[in-house]
């Protein structure tokens, strides 16, 4: 019973850890640059989950004030994550632009091939 309680308490955290580690693995293990950027965005979204989880109060509602409700979830993480999402898309767009330019210069988006050509040149 205690184990089940522990699972319910920390399931969000554990999934977030899994997503984060999956992102890390993709970034380190794969040589394709678009794949690396997908991994980077996986990593980012896992952080959103970590931030939003403690803000939730069971029985609370979304932080839009009204006379009908008294318990609201914490609005502060929402604001921080809103900022993080928009900064995230800005980073991804910049990374993709760099990938496009690298492809034009080297004719490849695989890390190993680019290193080879760089050594040749």
């Amino acid at each position: 019973m205690a184990a089940l309680q522990e699972l319910v308490n920390h399931y969000n955290h554990w999934i977030a850890v899994f997503l984060m580690v999956a992102g890390l693995y993709v970034v380190v293990a794969r040589g394709n640059m678009v794949k690396k950027l997908v991994g980077l965005s996986l990593f980012q979204t896992s952080v959103y989950l970590i931030y939003l989880t403690p803000g939730k109060i069971i029985g609370g509602t979304a932080p839009i004030l009204s006379d009908e409700f008294t318990v609201y979830s914490n609005p502060l993480p929402h604001v921080l994550i809103l900022t993080a999402i928009v900064v995230g898309i800005a980073t991804i767009a910049l990374g993709l632009a760099l990938v496009v330019r690298i492809n034009e210069a080297f004719g490849s988006i695989e890390e190993d091939e680019i290193f080879e050509k760089d050594v040749e040149a």
């Binding site: 928009v86 898309i89 800005a90 993709l96 632009a97 496009v100």
Partner: peptide, 16 residues
């Protein structure tokens, strides 16, 4: 800013 930037980035990628 968000509207103009997103649209401009899209144009840049597609126009390339």
């Amino acid at each position: 800013t968000v509207f103009a930037t997103m649209t401009a980035i899209f144009y840049a990628f597609v126009g390339r």
